[in-house]
């Protein structure tokens, strides 16, 4: 499995996706190949997918440290921990100064699994920002 195969699959899906979402893929070159996936109508929250030796990792950036109300940081962290298990397929993390949600799949996952993962991740990202907006400036 590599990002190009995934991009090919998602691009050929067009309107026939199981999730009802239309994906647009844009590879980003670098030391590690990353696929930037945008969901039609949700261009502001792209998903970044990269493939390692044994995993496929899908990440969506939520917000930066500077967007969190200073007196709400702890409360937000606790909420994130509490939500980590109920939230389907995705988990919270932090990369540098950015909070993210991500999903990790086994390298042996099928295209269907990946498609489902992306759909759920996108929905989770939207919901989480909505639900946690009280903590944000």
């Amino acid at each position: 499995m590599n990002i190009h195969k995934i991009a090919d699959y998602l691009n050929t899906l067009a309107d026939d996706s199981n999730t009802g979402m239309v994906f647009d893929c844009q590879p980003i070159s670098g030391e590690v190949d990353v696929l930037q996936i945008t969901v039609l109508g949700r261009e502001e929250l792209p998903i970044f997918l990269s493939v390692t030796d044994d995993q496929i990792i899908c990440i969506t950036y939520l917000w930066g440290e500077e967007e969190v109300k200073a007196d709400k940081v702890n409360e937000m962290h606790v909420s994130m921990l509490e939500m980590n298990i109920p939230m389907p397929l995705s988990s919270f993390s932090k990369i540098g100064d950015k909070y993210v949600i991500f999903g990790a799949l086994a390298i042996s996952s099928t295209f269907n699994d990946i498609e489902l993962e992306l759909g759920v991740l996108s929905n989770n990202a939207l919901e989480i920002i909505d639900d946690m907006s009280d903590y944000l400036v």
Partner: peptide, 16 residues
């Protein structure tokens, strides 16, 4: 695998 994943995520972040 953990080390490489960390490394990969970091490189991916830098590419992004």
């Amino acid at each position: 695998s953990m080390v490489k994943t960390t490394e990969s995520v970091q490189k991916a972040t830098s590419a992004i």
